[in-house]
Amino acid sequence: MDVDVFVAVHRHEWERLEQLTRRRRRLSGPEVDELVTLYRRTATHLSTIRSAAPDPVLVGRLSTLTARARSAVTAPRTPAWRDATLFLTVRFPVAVYRSRRWWGTTAVAFLVVASLIAAWVAHDPAVRDSVGAPDQIRELTRPGGDFETYYSSAPASSFAAQVATNNAWVTAGCLALGILLGLPVLFIVFSNAMNVGISAGLMADAGRLDVFFGLITPHGLLELTAVFIAAGVGLRLGWTVIDPGPRTRARAIAEEGRIALGMAVGLALVLVVSGIIEAFVTPSGLPTWGRITIGATAEAVFLAYVVILGRRAEFAGEQGDVASSDVADELPMIA
């Protein structure tokens, strides 16, 4: 094979490929198609040169050119740190913000149910007797009893990990089981509301409701918010199975499922913060107002983060789903 003739015939294609590669961020649709075509041809030319006339200079030039063209054609993924930043500043907050009606309604229902149960337990001796023996209830509610010592029952670091892990399982359950029409989510939320209501009712009957709120509020605000969000998203996923809207059911479930999966990661981070507060702040020697202030500040910061960044991302058209490049291609459908 005459290398000079080969170069003379194909030089204009290589030069054009090099031009397109340099302008890859500003290419029109036809130019992108041309880039792909020239990349394939040049890769074939490189293979031919290597096998028939391995000229080192020409092989080096074409190898560099095909490598650059491959990078332009395959569009390498964004670095992981950029994906993490995008998730924390756009995808997670907008997913939480878009589901606010679901988890807001869940929060109201939870508080109503817990309050009714608390009032029932506090005013009905028969209900308290069904909860536990009088000695057990007295040990739970007395000063320095089980309710107070629970938060200092283990070293703070291990207690924080234990609490965060347990709560992560609760939120993950709400998110994952929503696919079952949301019914398991309702059970999980009701069980938690019942536990909170019973504890509040027993402490109220003992005249120590202030201690109850003083201990549960610092970490409970953020912790329960995470549970409410997970439950709301799980219920929305369950409703999507029933009514997918204008999307096909398979596509709607896939989109909402991906969003729920991302929410699990974001809420796990929220629960880590809540667990740290529960382990280090709740049992600390700070005055009650100081502990509650820390918990309320953490809650306010999180809600401001969701509203400010979430609203901005929603106005920009974000849905909280993964990038389109990470989603499997779909065949066009004829209506």
Score class of each variant (00 low, 15 high):
Ala133Tyr: 14
Val211Arg: 12
Asp33Glu: 12
Tyr97Gly: 00
Val108Ser: 02
Phe92Asp: 07
Leu175Met: 10
Ile277Arg: 10
His219Gln: 11
Leu309Trp: 00
Phe213Ala: 07
Leu27Pro: 06
Ser191Glu: 13
Val185Tyr: 11
Gln319His: 14
Phe92Leu: 09
Phe190His: 10
Ile334His: 15
Arg41Gly: 07
Thr106Trp: 06
Phe187Pro: 01
Asp129Val: 01
Val306Pro: 07
Ile188Asp: 01
Tyr305Pro: 08
Pro283Cys: 10
Ala323Asp: 15
Arg77Ala: 14
Thr66Lys: 01
Leu221Trp: 06
Glu299Gly: 02
Ser51Asp: 14
Trp81Tyr: 13
Leu181Ile: 05
Trp239Gly: 02
Val327Lys: 15
Leu309Phe: 04
Arg251Pro: 05
Gly320Ile: 07
His123Ala: 01
Val90Trp: 00
Thr48Val: 04
Ala298Trp: 10
Thr85Glu: 04
Arg23Glu: 14
Gly132His: 04
Thr240Ala: 06
Ala206Cys: 12
Val73Ser: 03
Pro332Asp: 05
Ile277Thr: 06
Val301Phe: 11
Ala206Gln: 09
Arg24Ser: 13
Leu309Lys: 03
Thr248Gly: 11
Glu13Ala: 08
Val7Asn: 01
Ile292His: 11
Asp205Ser: 11
Leu111Trp: 06
Asp329Val: 15
Pro56Thr: 11
Thr282Phe: 10
Asp2Leu: 00
Phe280Pro: 08
Ala254Leu: 12
Ala250Val: 12
Thr78Gly: 04
Arg50Asn: 04
Pro79Ile: 09
Arg25Ile: 03
Leu331Trp: 14
Ile137Val: 14
Val108Lys: 07
Ile277Phe: 07
Phe87Lys: 07
Trp120Asp: 09
Asp2Arg: 00
Gly317Asn: 03
Val9Glu: 10
His45Thr: 05
Ile198Arg: 08
Ala114Thr: 12
Val322Asn: 02
Val90His: 00
Val73Tyr: 11
Pro56Leu: 01
Ala75Thr: 13
Arg208Ala: 02
Glu18Gln: 12
Val112Asp: 11
